[in-house]
Amino acid sequence: MASIEQAERRAPWILLSPALTAVGLLLLVPLVFVLVYSFWLRSAVGGIDATFSFNNWAEVLGDRFYRDILLQTIKIALITTVVCALAGYPAAYFIARVKGVNRGFLLLLLMLPFWVSYIIRTMSWINILGVSGAVNSLLQAMGIVTDPIQMLYNETTVVLGLVHYLLPFMILNIYVSLDGIDTTLEDAAHSLGATRWQAFTEVTLPLSMPGLGAGALLCFVLGAGTYITPIILGGPRDAMFANLVFDAIITQLDWPLGAALSLALLVVLGTVVVVYNRFAGLGQLAKGLG
């Protein structure tokens, strides 16, 4: 009997070993190396000079250029998150309140954007807002403007692209929360004299906070980590922090600087995740994904 018990105890670790090896070798150990790298220097010939130095960190933390772009990145991610929450909440509420086949259909539609490539969804806005896009052709056909207006390549279109990309995450997470709330609670509050709006703000909204929080976390972290959207929909002045990482690593081949930059991004976004985890727990995220 003892050997069976032993086997039972070993079994989960045997099953887990490939996954844990992968996470360890391909994520954890590399992250430690990024830390080491960030204290090394780039040698004159473009290679790595393995001497200890604070130079990269002094540059990342001291240079106004990096700080401004970091603040700009946080600002764009915050605006995106707020817009997603305001736009997504009523839609999630609607889905949670419709019944039967319609709800299933709306949920299936909500899943579809996840399967349409991010780059296609991003570039699709060029067809809409570009100089020869849908809006300009419409304005010209109606005689409102004679020459097309350049609406693309600014901060607003970056936010627009990010909202388009992240809105389904927000709606889905809020929906998961709303779906778990007994609808009769709102009716009860109403019958006890609360207005519809009061019943919503006093009962439903607080109960749906976990979903709203999970959606906001995803929107913020994914939005702040992007570098494709600013390249496609932003102008030359709309670079975000991840663009700096990409330029340092791929264009300038300055890996130690790139390592320091990516760790700075990890620390900022990691802090948000840790704070979220303290208040809400990461389990809520799994609900929206599963």
Binding site: V29, P30, L31, F33, G225, A242, F246, S262, L266, L282
Partner: peptide, 15 residues
Amino acid sequence: LVPEVVLAVALLLFL
């Protein structure tokens, strides 16, 4: 939980 850019950099530099 790790931003994809950071994961990308880490794996690239390590390997």
